[in-house]
Design a protein around this nucleic acid. Structure first.
Lengths: 234, 234
DNA sequence: ATACAATTTTTTTAAAACCTAATCATTTTA
DNA sequence: TAAAATGATTAGGTTTTAAAAAAATTGTAT
């Protein structure tokens, strides 16, 4: 009955994993150097706690850490962080596609599921879901080696009058924003056309799926990502 | 990015949950009183550690604990322990039915998955799996209220010469036993007939699925559960 | 009644994760 | 370039969780 730990070379606590993910997100694809304060802001903790953790992660060689100079993920760290993103997004696909959750309900649960440690599990899950390339919010799912499926995308707010496009993602992942979009049927794969751009506040008048007319604020438009009517997923 | 705890009345650590499960298993359906030593044996720890934990669980009113008299699960504790068993077994069904794991590979992973906290998740998973009544090892899956699907079952070793039955479960859940059974095609739902009982060592000669002849030791027979060719699952 | 086994109490260890306050390093700007 | 502001680290401590050792206590069988 004693808890059998998975036999992994590196056993990380959930907090350590969350720090890795955080650094991964902040430093972007260029693997830029990230500051202690940026991390503490994201993690809602103090800078001192972050320094504490960075030393431990550095000890485990998951980050390149030079004091006063910021951090970086090491090769090992990137692989682990990438794995976490991958797991998270695959589980989100599972929750929406198979268990019929809506796109605004899945984040918290996936946040827990991503810490389940089993490479075989993720491999099989990926297969079961037919190797999806994007998650329910349109975010790309990296493969085992960190490779992403590239896609042309731009903010809805960059479209000009008369132009058409298909919704492929969102920038804001907040529950309220996602719920709002769902209520307006502004979901992934939906085609829309810009009818009018209101000069005064940069809000848009659009038609959704060729029929419904809809007004969206510039803030909403800014957070919707559109592409050139390509395949929505997989 | 700070870990958002699920808003549950009772937040338990994984270890606490494992203790609950352990007590649940040891005390059986009668909710009998369990001794500190029994628990320490099961949990591979010292009696002192168990006493420690019992006090904490008692504090949270999950167990009825009278010192020197042993423990019992409280109503609350039973509900939680039942939920853990339920989750564990549902995840095992998922892993085998959907992700094509074999029945000897799923325990460790389900052990992790069972700690994911979301009632809605389990409800949806149950639905997705078409409300299975038994897990891949033939163990019954309790419903939300702790009700089990009843089934007539007996050990293969109790069958008399000439009698037939269908495999519905196992008593031993060890990897080696499960792998052995799989290698002999002695899996759930398989029909068999006792051809001969060897007096000397109580081993059996059986036919599997009407064709294959097979010798099984008394120890193996003891750990196979059979029923009267009823529906295997759901 | 007493010895022995089971159980509990008390104390200790240890790690994870966080905090406050003080200090130190770097960058900016006056 | 020196002082001020910003940013990061250290030191020291708290809390939580889990486990264990040693010592004391209780229950029970003979």
């Amino acid at each position: 009955m004693k808890k059998k730990l998975p036999y992994l070379r590196i056993m990380l606590s959930q907090t350590e994993e969350n720090y890795l993910k955080c650094i991964y997100k902040l430093s972007g694809s260029a693997n830029a150097t990230v500051s202690t304060n940026d991390i503490s802001a994201q993690m809602q903790t103090t800078a001192a706690s972050v320094t504490d953790m960075l030393k431990r992660l550095s000890e485990k060689e998951l980050v390149n850490y030079a004091k006063y100079k910021g951090v970086n993920l090491s090769e090992e760290g990137r692989i682990l962080a990438n794995g976490l993103i991958r797991r998270h997004r695959l589980w989100e696909v599972f929750l929406v596609e198979k268990l019929k959750f809506s796109w605004d309900e899945v984040h918290e649960i996936a946040e827990q599921l991503e810490h389940i440690n089993s490479d075989l599990l993720i491999q099989r899950l990926d297969e079961f879901l037919s190797f999806p390339k994007f998650d329910p919010h349109g975010d790309p799912i990296p493969d085992r080696h960190g490779k992403y499926f590239k896609r042309k995308e731009q903010s809805l707010s960059t479209l000009k009058k008369g132009e058409s496009a298909v919704i492929v993602g969102v920038k804001d992942h907040s529950t309220t924003f996602l719920q709002y979009l769902a209520s307006q049927k502004l979901t992934l794969g939906v085609a829309l056309t810009v009818q009018e751009i209101i000069e005064y506040d940069k809000s848009l008048l659009i038609t959704v799926s060729g029929k419904k007319k809809l007004a969206v604020s510039s803030q909403v438009a800014e957070n919707i990502l559109v592409g050139n009517n390509e395949k929505p997923n997989s």
